[in-house]
């Protein structure tokens, strides 16, 4: 087991517990023990573009000090911070880059954080769970698949946070393939949705449900046209919008086809034979589809 620092983030502790639980389970199966950072705080929730308000960079940097503290103990083998939430990953990585590029900002923040056990040195490396899976390799994942998802048509959806801006992107921002690679390793069939990189509507979902429903309608339509049974995401907010705004999309468009949305880690857990019971609230229930597949794999159908 390789032990690595792990930052779950607030959403994975509340609305997206299924992402947290399935992530830990999948990595344990692949030989990585994710060690939750002690005393982590909110990542900052959205990366602040305000250049003269450094206070908004304090939240992410405090977390990176926690990583340093954990690195100083013997509880991790690989020092890189693993982050599954696309939003947290984006915020932490951009804040980190800003500190590396602006030593004066880093000094100001360190002066402000005088209560901390140590200043931030600007050296923590942040890696997304998908990048780590790529490192572990599709070959290795394939070897551990117990129930190949043969015939299941999966449409990967990326959204923005994993690919924009390109400096923090986990893959080619115009033509990513990281989710596709994993889907194929699981034995499922990748279907191509040409709207897989579009914005899901993000936080507009709070005040502009209709606007987000329109975006979601288009995205789901793209997946439906490609023949998808299922959509996979790596972002709690994308996942929420793509799933729950189908309610409004369905009400507004009679031709809307409901497609369930789950995290790629849940799909992996299914194929690796770890389980199907990570909970999570859905508008479009994925269970009938997933159950059907499990039964087929086990020789039921």
């Amino acid at each position: 087991m390789t032990r690595m620092p792990y930052y779950p983030g607030c959403t994975l502790k509340t609305k997206a517990q299924n992402y947290d639980l399935s992530t830990r389970a999948v990595f344990r199966e692949l030989g990585v023990d994710l060690v939750e950072l002690p005393r982590w705080n909110c990542c900052g929730a959205v990366f602040s573009l305000v250049t003269d308000d450094l206070l908004r960079q304090v939240a992410p940097i405090t977390n990176l000090i926690r990583v340093q503290e954990l690195q100083g103990t013997d509880s991790v083998d690989d020092p890189r911070l693993v982050v599954p939430c696309a939003m947290c990953f984006n915020v932490l990585k951009r804040a980190n880059a800003r500190m590396k590029d602006n030593p004066e900002d880093l000094k100001k923040i360190n002066d402000f954080l005088y209560l901390e056990s140590q200043p931030y040195r600007g050296e923590v490396q942040i890696i997304h769970t998908l990048e780590l899976l790529k490192e572990i390799s599709a070959k290795r994942i394939k070897e551990q698949v117990k129930f190949p998802l043969l015939g299941l048509k999966v449409s990967p959806y990326y959204g923005c946070n994993l690919l924009r801006p390109k400096d923090v992107a986990i893959d080619n921002p115009e033509n990513p393939s990281i989710l596709e690679g994993i889907t194929e390793a699981l034995g499922a069939k990748v279907v191509f949705n040409n709207r897989r990189l579009r914005c899901c509507g993000s936080y507009q979902t709070v005040s502009e449900k209709g606007l987000v429903a329109d975006l979601v309608y288009d995205i789901i339509k793209g997946a439906a046209r490609a023949g998808a049974d299922l959509i996979i995401t790596a972002c709690p907010l994308c996942s929420f919008n793509l799933d729950w705004r189908q309610k409004e999309a369905m009400e507004a468009h009679s031709d809307h086809k409901l497609i369930p949305v789950i995290y790629y880690t849940e799909l992996m857990a299914l194929a690796l034979g770890i389980g199907n019971g990570f909970g999570g609230e859905h508008f479009v229930d994925p269970q009938p589809l997933l159950q059907k597949f499990l039964e087929k794999e086990k020789g039921g159908i």
Binding site: N41, L55, V58, A59, T62, F112
Partner: peptide
């Protein structure tokens, strides 16, 4: 709205980890 700035922890006369419980 918490910014994780830890100002609460700095001022606490009981020396509590105030920001940690807010988080």
């Amino acid at each position: 709205r918490c910014l994780s700035c830890n100002t609460c922890t700095k001022i606490c006369p009981q020396e509590l980890q105030v920001m940690d419980f807010v988080q």
